Simulated assay, not measured.
Amino acid sequence: MTGNQTAEGPKHQKDLTRRKVVVAGAGAAVAVGTGGALAAGAFAGESGAKGAKGTSASASSTSSSGEVCYQLTSETTEGPYYIDADKIRRDITEDKEGIPLTLTLKVIDSETCKPIADAAVDVWHCDALGLYSGYESFSNGGGGGAPTDAPTDAPSGTPTGEPPSGGGGGGGHQEPTSDTRYLRGTWKTDKKGFVTFKTIFPGWYQGRCVHIHTKVHVDGEWTDAGYEGGNTCHTGQFFFDEESALAAAEVAPYATSTTERTTLDEDTIYDGSGVQGGLLKLKYKKNDIAKGVLATITMGVDPEATRTGQDS
């Protein structure tokens, strides 16, 4: 899909300069774009997502005129279970059971705050019981519990080659061991930088909190075969606040998991920086999360950078 992406640029330095982007209202991350209207107003209640130590998940408003500032979105490790854009689609659910999740993303240039159109956005995550498609023999789902000596977000057994970099979600890339591809997909951003995926609320597995992986590719070409060439300018993860994770854990099939869940504060990948670190803004009906969740976030990326997640 995106060609050979082994070249890497200088190690990423987070740009802490706050830049402004004018939006229709203070809730920039929930602006209705492609697919956003599908879920707008669909949920009576809203969960105010909070990060580690009470960090607010919503972007901070700088004035009543609706100006909102964004920082460069944090880079994270790719993890071992990435498959290079097998499925060009927006609905990645297939037949997996779980709480319906509408994931609406906006991609902007962190320097200019302008939306990035025609970018290829990948998302992938585990199912309700912690299994990744293509890697069921590696990922430790929660049906019978995980081995006590299993590594976090890494395959069991003796690794080959260099030791995995980073902890709790790092690990070198592993080749798929099955043909399944549920809960994976790639789609392009519209002219306003929006892209929407239909999926399910992820489950969890040993050593990691509830999360979704993502990549953003730019400067490639959309063809009948998919997306070709270009550059991976962002590799990150999206995170869910504790209130939503606890609520989901009470719903089948999540409630059948026997795997101990790592909390957001305990996770070794989430950096505690709220939206900048990938914390999603969530909307769902209070006391009835099973009806569905709307998750939104704006990603500020550097389109000229190469960020494959191998140097994070």
Rank of each mutant, 00 (worst) to 15 (best):
S74K: 14
S110C: 14
N140D: 14
K114N: 14
L129V: 09
T148K: 11
A119F: 13
I88E: 09
E162N: 01
L105I: 08
L72W: 04
W124Q: 08
G134V: 13
A120T: 05
R90A: 09
G141K: 05
P115G: 02
K87A: 10
A120M: 06
I116P: 01
E162W: 03
D91T: 04
D95S: 15
E78A: 11
G130L: 12
S137V: 02
I108W: 05
A128T: 08
D95L: 12
G79T: 08
F138Q: 14
D95I: 12
V121Y: 07
Y132T: 03
D95A: 11
P164G: 15
I88K: 04
G79F: 03
G134D: 03
K87C: 02
E162R: 06
P155E: 09
S156E: 08
P115Y: 01
Y132N: 13
K106V: 06
D109Q: 10
A117N: 07
G130H: 12
G98A: 08
D153K: 09
G130Y: 04
G141Y: 14
G79W: 08
D84C: 10
P155F: 10
L103S: 06
T93A: 05
G134T: 08
L72H: 11
T148R: 06
G98V: 09
D149I: 02
A154M: 11
W124R: 13
P147K: 09
L72D: 15
I92F: 03
P147Y: 14
I99Y: 13
K114S: 03
G134W: 06
P155Y: 06
A85G: 09
G161I: 01
D127W: 11
D149A: 12
S133L: 07
N140R: 14
S74H: 07
